[in-house]
């Protein structure tokens, strides 16, 4: 585990999580997927998309596995198209009843 340090004094910039990508993902998916379960093809870790680590880019987002850091989801919104790339996602389980 990393040593305890709080935001402002941390040497690392704060990393957001998948919750903050809800809007970008909602452009592509018909459901809110932040509460969907995702399984990482790299290490087998299962968690909610809301728990993934989010890295912002000028054009989009990269969501990484909190366990092994694999890039699970990349989403880029360009002027005429939106690119979605999920190279390391083994599965997504989307609850249809919203629970």
């Amino acid at each position: 585990m990393k040593p305890a340090s709080h935001g402002a004094t941390s040497a690392e910039p704060d990393v957001l999580d998948g919750n903050a990508a809800a809007g970008a993902l909602r452009q592509v998916f018909a459901f809110d997927v932040t509460s969907a379960d995702v399984v990482c093809a790299g290490c087998g870790n299962a968690c909610c998309i809301g728990e993934l680590r989010l890295y912002g880019l000028p054009m989009g987002h990269i969501l990484r596995c909190p366990h092994c850091d694999a890039a699970l989801i990349r989403i880029m919104a360009l002027e005429r198209a939106c690119w979605l790339d999920m190279p390391q996602v083994r599965s997504l389980r989307i609850s249809v009843r919203g629970t």
Binding site: M1, K2, A4, S5, H6, G7, A8, S10, E12, D14, V15, L16, D17, N19, A20, G50, E51, R53
Partner: peptide, 27 residues
């Protein structure tokens, strides 16, 4: 903030909270 969330979530799991009962959001 990320570091606070990680310290807290890890401490709760250590106290015996199942990780599925600990929801996190990083600011």
């Amino acid at each position: 903030p990320t570091a606070m969330v990680e310290v807290t979530a890890a401490a709760l799991v250590m106290l015996g909270y199942p990780s599925a009962r600990v929801r996190t959001e990083r600011f």
